[in-house]
Write a protein that binds this DNA or RNA. Structure first.
Lengths: 219, 219
DNA sequence: ACCTGAACACCGTTCAAGT
DNA sequence: ACCTGAACACCGTTCAAGT
């Protein structure tokens, strides 16, 4: 029998969170289990539970770490900067989309929700939106950003590389074009755009559309 | 031993889907398992697998049934009608929010995605949005509707009854008010609105904001 | 204080066997 | 064709025992 792998560093909460992120990135949502995690960290489940209360807390910690990194206090670019910061984080870590949705709804007073809401709200305020409209404007931006970024990440997750991605979008586009013309005129009409669109460009156009609505109401 | 409960009707795919919906409604996302489902249907797992390929397909079928019911062909009220149709469906079946998010991202060519996209797109077209902007306008509305409705359903899910709900929103609002004034000025400022807001009203205001952006770009 | 690893209750799914 | 129910591989979590 080969000698047991010896851990080079002591087990810490931070090391566990890092390993979890790596596992989620490489093997996807379903890839993180306490079995795979203990294997990677060369330890037993009990050791992990000493540092972390349960799987939910572990996922929350992983999510918070990435969101904090994506939204530094000195982030430039106004609302577009915030939107792209989250967009890129979700692109790099597709599982974040699902996590953020659950965290937002299950624990709206916990760290990650105020973190994102504040970053968006700060920029909404900078646009001189009247007080009564700020909550709605920030909510609309929040939901659009998370939804659109998640959608895009999902496409990337299914597709993998660049050419695979093109193939995937192409197959979706084709499926849409084959829908019943009477029942699905709109979906058929935009099928071509589904194939050709540039993600970031499309994403930012959506932001601008919402911003146009915000400033239109200002007057 | 009491005589085994005899099924009154034969097992069909429809009956299985109905039982799954009922189970999800009464016990939540985690309440639907093949154990609870076989118990309710007085059968074994093999019987269910004869009618349904796997749990994913069962969830997809349940989702599609409710969305189809929520968006009939003759639905009145324009885009507000579509938005409220989905809002109410998600309010009545909070687990729908998560399901729709996964379905939308995992299988964008399967029935439920075109169903919703078409309903929204039809109304976008009716607003005489230029061809090049229709895809983005429909996407923005889609993400906002699903995100905001899901958020609201999540509040309702945690809270239960009306007074419980008020208590829950109150506790979130209070938690927001206790955030660091230097780091969270915006979130603190809108905390009061979080407590007082009317869901449907707020939800429709968000729709109108996006619509304002759509028509503002038209000119 | 920190870690080990066997054990528990539970899950989705399969499949030989029945009718 | 339709259903039964034991069995399989896997999951998150616990806990007595070690250092």
């Amino acid at each position: 029998m080969p000698p047991r792998t010896r851990r080079s560093e002591a087990l810490t909460r931070q090391r566990i969170v890092d390993a979890a992120i790596e596992l989620l990135d490489t093997t996807g949502d379903a890839g993180l289990t306490f079995r795979t995690l203990t294997e990677r960290l060369a330890t037993g489940p009990g050791a992990i539970y000493w540092h972390v209360a349960n799987k939910g807390e572990l996922l929350a910690a992983a999510t918070e770490a990435l969101v904090t990194a994506a939204l530094p206090a000195d982030l430039p670019g106004g609302i577009h900067g915030v939107a792209l910061g989250l967009f890129d984080a979700i692109s790099a870590h597709p599982w974040l989309a699902t996590q953020l949705a659950t965290q937002l709804s299950r624990s709206p007073s916990k760290s990650v929700t105020p973190l994102i809401f504040e970053a968006i709200g700060r920029e909404v305020r900078a646009l001189d939106v009247p007080d009564g409209d700020q909550f709605i404007a920030a909510s609309a931006l929040l939901h659009y950003i998370l939804g659109a970024a998640g959608q895009n990440a999902a496409n990337a997750r299914v597709a993998g590389s660049g050419t695979e991605r093109a193939e995937f979008l192409n197959s979706v586009s084709k499926a849409w074009e084959q829908l019943d013309p009477d029942d699905y005129p709109f979906t058929r009409a935009v099928a071509a755009q589904m194939r050709e669109h540039d993600d970031r460009e499309q994403f930012l156009a959506g932001i601008d559309l919402i911003l146009a609505g915000i400033t239109a109401r200002e007057r």
